[in-house]
Design a protein around this nucleic acid. Sequence first.
DNA 1: TTGACATGATACCAAAAGGTTTCCTATAAG
DNA 2: CTTATAGGAAACCTTTTGGTATCATGTCAA
Lengths: 108, 108
Amino acid sequence: MSLHTDHAQPVFRALADPTRRAIVMLLADRDLRVSDIATRFEMTRPAVAKHLAVLKSADLIRVSIAGRERINHLNPAALKAATDWLAWFDRFWDDRLAALKSAVEKDA
Amino acid sequence: MSLHTDHAQPVFRALADPTRRAIVMLLADRDLRVSDIATRFEMTRPAVAKHLAVLKSADLIRVSIAGRERINHLNPAALKAATDWLAWFDRFWDDRLAALKSAVEKDA
DNA sequence: TTGACATGATACCAAAAGGTTTCCTATAAG
DNA sequence: CTTATAGGAAACCTTTTGGTATCATGTCAA
């Protein structure tokens, strides 16, 4: 299976931390600067900056520089790597497919 | 948003490790014992057992005991927590695509 | 030009994660 | 009964992770 070429690794790694998932959701709503994000969590700005670095390395966020400010915006397309990996298992828990499968097997 | 109640945490945490994702794929194919899995990786059985413990704690695998053997089988339904979290962003990049599309059309 | 602000960079720390080795127990098989 | 097999459990080690405090730098504004 081509899933063996594990390009989803950085994305799953990034999403493993609850703070980072919360940041992703924040950025889904609007673009934010590091310090904007930091005020919304009970942790220091450098801590948030580290989380952003992990998200960046997974290409989940992009940064545009405007003067002394760096605007972080979400790149939702990067989530596709994870979605694709998970989609491979759809056939297992889809009840309709399971029903169809047993029907087909019975028929055969 | 109800996603704030982060029940997806154990699943994302479990999927963050490439070995564990590989184990999940193995178990999608067939049920296996700990030592069966261990032979397929370049690590010891206790190491694999630890990975299985993480997967169990996310309810991604279930164990049935048969004599001295413990059969691990996948519980694909547990992946739904992660899939649902990611699905929240589907409409987001759908919107983006729509915006892109209209921009392109405007340009033409 | 002189601060104030936004952020990067570095050093450091404790805890968690991923492994290994070793040992113990329970069951199956000869 | 004795031995081999399956796997749990504990002790230990190293690297990574998530976080802090502190300092350096570039830019905007008075």
